[in-house]
């Protein structure tokens, strides 16, 4: 069952993830916001597909998936900042990147708050050491 879920997630991202990335690159190279937006929408569709698979399997994102997602998000941010500094970035490129970051950030907050509630969503990041761990120290 666990392999089933992983395989489904893999199938979704191998198609929609790559297509989304491709459209974003296409938008950046053609300086077309609409094409870039199509890429962002495809990435969102991949996330929705992933969440549906999670729902069907009655589980959330796995720690590895979260780490990979956040890592990629950080890497894309870094690439964008470096690209901005090193080369000329057009207004459209800027809008595409901002749209992607905004949609991903808002989407993450929306997902966490709808799944865990606002208070518990914050606790997902702010993990206090348990009393036992404190005593051991």
């Amino acid at each position: 069952m666990r392999d089933d879920r992983k395989l489904l997630v893999f199938c979704i991202w191998s198609v929609l993830g790559f297509l989304g990335m491709g459209f974003i690159l296409e938008g950046l190279s053609r300086d077309s916001y609409l094409v870039g937006l199509l890429g962002v929408c495809t990435i969102v569709a991949a996330f929705i597909g992933h969440i549906i698979v999670n729902y069907l399997n009655k589980q959330g994102f796995e720690p590895g998936e979260t780490a990979l997602g956040l890592g990629l998000f950080g890497l894309i941010c870094l690439l964008f900042v470096v690209g901005w500094i090193v080369s000329e970035t057009s207004q459209t490129d800027y809008y595409i990147a901002i749209t992607l970051f905004a949609v991903l950030s808002i989407g993450m907050i929306a997902y966490l708050s709808s799944r865990y509630g606002m208070r518990q969503a914050f606790s997902r990041f702010h993990i206090k050491p348990t009393s036992d761990e404190g005593n051991e120290k």
């Binding site: 395989l7 199938c11 191998s14």
Partner: peptide, 10 residues
Amino acid sequence: GFVGAVQAVL
């Protein structure tokens, strides 16, 4: 089977 599912979708 596992690889084939990904290959088919691709």
